[in-house]
């Protein structure tokens, strides 16, 4: 096959399908990391640069719960998710909200500063050593014919769908969810009807952080944790959010799967190293040509 003068290898459909299916599993993880990011963007219009660092912090939480108390990484969710919520709430209420004077570019820089502090704090206290959570079932799984899926991958896929669904229900059915949607739609109006906007902002940031903590638990059995691990996901998560449409949950899910599949096919056809450029290229093209993404409503020129 010829492609811009490069000769691409040709594969049988099983190989291609196998790659695509493993892309779906990878995409589920991307979608989940992106979900918290898109929620925060949708309400606060913040691009949270600290998201990757918070993911990393969550993974350390899961690791130490497993290492020191023998708690299974999936069970650790019961602890890291509320912990993530509390941390996110406090960060927004007392650091980001206070330091940013409500200006978008300043918020971006404040979250960048936070990510640097958190990342290097982890480097300082935990060192750069990679640490792995070992579970007895990490190599068991199901043979799907075209590829083999291990339980942690299946759990990540199921977890992403369940958490996205739960978040959607929460937003639609609870009073807090309604208040969040009201603030996202019309900040001033929400304030006028008696909603405490600062509190709702902090709750939203807390929810976003709680979701990324859940993602940390689902990732822990497959990815070793080190202070830089967040960076691996954060640029991809930005791409997913932009592709899906900033603030859209469905967009995060669809975007996650699309990016996961594209990346795996990119690797198959263009090699391990160059294959990941597909992600950057999609990112740039979507930003230029359709900054509202697939499911977004807000204009990109903000």
């Amino acid at each position: 096959m010829e492609f811009f003068g490069l000769t691409l290898p040709s594969y049988g459909w099983e190989t291609v399908l196998g790659s695509a299916v493993s892309g779906v599993f990878l995409g589920a993880i991307y979608a989940l990391v992106a979900l918290g990011l898109t929620l925060i963007y949708g309400v606060l219009h913040i691009i949270n640069f600290a998201h990757g660092a918070l993911l990393m912090l969550g993974m350390y939480g899961v690791f130490f719960l497993w290492k020191l108390a023998g708690i299974d990484p999936y069970l650790a969710m019961l602890i890291v998710v509320p912990g993530g919520f509390a941390l996110g709430y406090l960060l927004q209420r007392f650091v980001i909200g206070k330091a940013s004077h409500g200006r978008d570019e300043i918020i971006l820089l404040v979250t960048l500063g936070l990510s640097i502090v958190i990342e290097n704090g982890a480097l300082f206290f935990f060192s750069a050593t990679e640490r792995s959570v070992l579970v007895p079932y990490d190599l068991d799984g199901i043979d799907l014919g075209v590829t083999y899926a291990v339980w942690p991958e299946i759990a990540a896929l199921a977890g992403s769908l369940a958490i996205t669904g739960a978040l959607w229900l929460f937003m639609m059915r609870t009073d807090t969810g309604r208040a969040i949607r009201a603030v996202a739609r019309e900040r001033r109006g929400a304030q006028l009807v008696g909603i405490n906007v600062d509190h709702i902002f902090a709750v939203t940031f807390g929810l976003g952080t709680a979701i990324v903590a859940a993602a940390a638990s689902l990732l822990a059995p497959t990815y070793p944790v080190h202070p830089q691990i967040g960076n691996l996901f954060v640029l991809i998560a930005f791409t997913v959010v932009v592709l899906g449409g900033m603030g859209s949950f469905v967009g995060a899910l669809v975007g996650g799967f699309l990016i996961g599949i594209t990346e795996q096919l990119g690797r198959l056809y263009m090699g391990e190293s160059l294959g990941v450029i597909t992600v950057s290229v999609i990112f740039i093209l979507v930003l230029l040509l359709r900054p509202t993404g697939l499911f977004g409503q807000r204009s990109g020129q903000g």
Partner: peptide, 19 residues
Amino acid sequence: RYGLRGSYFALITLAFAEA
């Protein structure tokens, strides 16, 4: 040319560096 400002400009420069 495509009118990117603020956060969007920050993101696209990040993407170019990564590319």
